[in-house]
Design a protein around this nucleic acid. Structure first.
Lengths: 341, 341
DNA sequence: TTGAAAGCGTTACCAA
DNA sequence: TTGGTAACGCTTTCAA
């Protein structure tokens, strides 16, 4: 920067102001400096800026399991925005281990990171009484129970109701629901969406919720086995995740039943392989990358403006009609694989 | 740090040395300082350290396409190691756009990042004459042609030969190969592996390579269509990626042929959905996460030790036997989904 | 509108 | 073995 100042024949402080687009520098001076900066390819020293500004310049993303296909795209959205804002991102995977989770959360307390984006839907204990909780933490894609934290998420209840309504629109009445772990707010919201859609259709007698321990393929397989072994099979099943749907479909076929002819399925998430799966999954897509971007924007905005009132953001889901629900393709619905969104 | 020094009744310089585990501090002093650091939850200020050490503290990862399932796990391995080493990672996706790629590469030239990890197999033009090329760049999972850059990769020729040999071991002789874009070193290595395995088995008359434009599902679908429409179908197909295998299998079934009974398939990569696919894919797994970790270690090592001779690392692949190859499960081979490695 | 200078937290050199 | 101190590059307050 001293170099730039020399070339522009001004003081470093002027260069600094010019770069910050301060009104206390004439337009001509700014322009001259801007040109030199461009020519020299100068970039401000991140370390020096952070040192001066008393920020770590880092955001910590806490997610439950790196292996799950859902998260990477959210993370990439976060990275993208963070980078634009001059912050970097570090990732911590709890692997469902409490100790690891608390250790990660410590990083906010001791100032190693400026803020945390939670993808776990769970607030670490050590942060429960942290003063700046609303300014330094944002929950993305999984809301946190009990406590008010700004979040970015789809409306899970509405989204799942939309899934069920799509099955209803195919003429199915006996529709079961394979749900996520019953304590998670997300699972609860989806169960409510299911229940509401069924009730509104006057089908409350058909309501059947089979809760699983997790959202993975194996959980779906087991849940479907329980459903099939406990009486006459339902005509359709709404699953709380695509992975569950895949497991459940495998289960169903193992029993000699056809999908979607005997039992129709709808998943949730639109993970990248939902389209390649056989049968291709009808599902609800949430804008993963977008949620990551918005989450990072929200967090950084809160960090930079201590006086701003933290808010939450609800994003739109999208119904993706493919094969597993047994529908004729309706016009205007995309069925392309989820490349980005 | 001044605070720590005060509590320990020493100078900040001593604290700094103690924290760096310098031999010029007595064990007792170190221990005393260590304790205080622990109690206070002190962490060194990243910005100050970077400022002082003249490093940006950032590694840039350049990858071709964030949507591809292969990369996120490599990136997470990189992040993990980088974090341990006190560096952060930023991610740039070229989306196959040259302009974007060159812009990203600029960041190394102007010092915004200390090093680059290339997952593209392609060295941006602007870096071609960069002096510190061997110290500041590492190629992971895709080697770079023409120019010597340290890399971390499996032995693609050997790995693909292993895939073909597995098909040979099932008794197939008429084995075709759906290959990646012919100019990529990776595709070439795999083609060589295929050719060698076939030749060594005395089956060179059966050699048939169908090159595709990319590694995705659609590319596999089209390549298989070309194969099927040009004469009697092969008995088995070795594909250069799992996604290609998925597309090719769909193509095959569309023609009324059974998999693996009429045509057997083997994929490559062991992406997370290879196990869930129907039929579950036999494939070659490369240790994605491990490669990311090693790549980051290698880069950071090179950055920190200007005098060290840059080296490359070859990691082991693993044959994963599942259903698509028509094999009886052989003992000792895992078929679990690729959760991590 | 611009310049001068202090200070952010570290590290490394030199002195003791 | 330890202490003192300059310097890293930036921002911001105060002065001009």
């Amino acid at each position: 920067m001293a170099h730039i100042a020399q070339l522009a024949e001004v003081d470093v402080s002027t260069v600094s102001r010019a770069l910050a687009d301060s009104p206390r520098v004439t337009v001509e001076t700014k322009e001259r400096i801007r040109k030199i900066v461009e020519e020299t390819g100068y970039v401000v020293n991140h370390g020096a800026r952070m040192l001066r500004n008393q920020m770590a310049g880092q955001i910590l993303v806490i997610l439950p399991n790196i292996a799950a296909t859902f998260y990477p795209e959210v993370v990439l959205g976060i990275e993208d925005t963070a980078q634009k804002e001059g912050m970097s991102v570090i990732i911590g995977s709890t692997q469902l281990d409490n100790v690891r989770e608390e250790a990660l959360a410590q990083q906010l307390l001791n100032g190693a990171v400026d803020g945390i984006i939670l993808l776990t839907g769970h607030l670490p204990e050590v942060l429960r009484n942290f003063a700046g909780i609303e300014r330094h933490i944002v929950a993305v894609s999984r809301s946190v129970a009990d406590i008010s934290i700004p979040y970015v998420n789809i409306d899970n209840e509405k989204a799942f109701a939309a899934a069920v309504k799509h099955l209803l629109a195919q003429g199915y009445t006996d529709i079961a629901h394979i749900a996520g772990p019953k304590r998670s707010p997300t699972a609860i919201a989806r169960i409510q969406g299911y229940t509401r859609a069924m009730t509104e259709a006057g089908l409350s007698t058909f309501i059947r919720v089979e809760a699983a321990e997790s959202y993975d393929i194996e959980a779906g397989r087991l849940a479907m086995q329980r459903i099939l072994s406990s009486g006459p099979p339902p005509r359709a099943v709404a699953c709380a995740s695509d992975e569950m749907a895949m497991g459940a479909i495998r289960s169903t076929r193992n029993e000699g039943l056809r999908v979607p002819e005997d039992i129709a399925f709808i998943g949730f998430d639109d993970i990248s392989f939902a389209a390649a799966f056989e049968p291709a999954l009808t599902t609800i897509r949430s804008p993963r990358r977008k949620m990551g971007e918005l989450g990072a924007q929200l967090l950084i905005r809160n960090l930079k403006n201590p006086n701003l009132k933290p808010k939450s953001i609800v994003v739109e889901h999208q119904l993706i009609v493919r094969e597993s629900c047994g529908a004729k393709r309706s016009k205007g619905k995309t069925s392309a694989p989820n490349r980005d969104n």
